[in-house]
Write a protein that binds this DNA or RNA. Structure first.
Lengths: 152, 152
DNA sequence: ATTGAAAGCACTACCTG
DNA sequence: CAGGTAGTGCTTTCAAT
């Protein structure tokens, strides 16, 4: 159940190199291939590893613009939250949605081609989200860094 | 250079299933294994695919708390920004750092075990970042959703 | 924890339209 | 030039030690 140092080492490597071969991973973890393989299977089965994914280059795909959108709802009732969350999950440009503590605020992370494209997303999708009282958008000038690797 | 519909299909699949075998990916893209393999190699070489990574379960690893930290610097000179960015990149709990448009503001995304652990990170790392004039932390109560998949 | 063996896979070289 | 066919050597995976 609990992770030892070898498990954490495996997870650290997999977080950076998700397509590494089991043979190479075993070397990095100083294990035999089969022992390493069994640990990885255990870590996957127990849910430590949620997914393996390819990370694409947002610039190359013409989506270099990141916008954080702060949204205040008109009410905090559960059904209002639920309706909002269901609707926001259907907007492809929204990569993250967090319910914030304190007020009934959400923060969305949105990607777009440029400010004009964001204006379109805003008009076409965001203004149609249910239960919204206020919305404020903050544009990222530049992503200094971004990682999916948790400190394990 | 430009992507056709088959390329985008491959990228969509790889964004969800980064460890899919080439054989299965070829089936999903209705291509032969070799044709598919060559396309993937091209997409990697041209930089559309930045990385393959494992996404871990932050809850299982006792890091369920996400905090957005807004930081205003005391000056906007390049060397002040650079010093700040270099220092913030060394804090393991900081997963993202964005320079925001308009003011000299940064937004950080930070993960922690709980509010107490965040207090420690704040005290130990964030208060020591150079050039900071103001700092405001907003806690996420709940991550509604989070994806790394860009809309391609 | 290592070994060995069977199956599946990646990758290449070589054709085909 | 992109896709298909076929062959070689690795990797995975499981069973046995």
């Amino acid at each position: 159940m609990a992770l030892d140092e070898t498990d954490r080492r495996i997870l650290r490597v997999l977080q950076r190199r998700g397509r590494i071969s089991n043979a190479e991973l075993a070397t990095e973890a100083t294990l035999s291939a089969s022992a390493c393989h069994r640990r990885v299977q255990r870590l996957e089965a127990e849910g430590y590893v949620r997914d393996y994914v390819a990370l694409l280059d947002a610039r190359k795909l013409d989506l270099p613009t990141t916008v954080f959108v702060e949204i205040k709802l008109s009410a905090q009732a559960d059904d209002v939250l639920e309706a909002f969350e269901t609707a926001v999950a259907r907007v492809p440009a929204v990569l993250e949605c967090h319910l914030m503590a304190g007020t009934a605020d959400y923060i969305l992370k949105v990607v777009a081609e440029d400010t004009e494209d964001f204006a379109r997303i805003h008009r076409q999708y965001l203004t149609r989200l249910p239960g919204v009282a206020q919305m404020q958008s903050s544009f990222a000038l530049r992503t200094v860094f971004k990682t999916t690797a948790l400190p394990v």
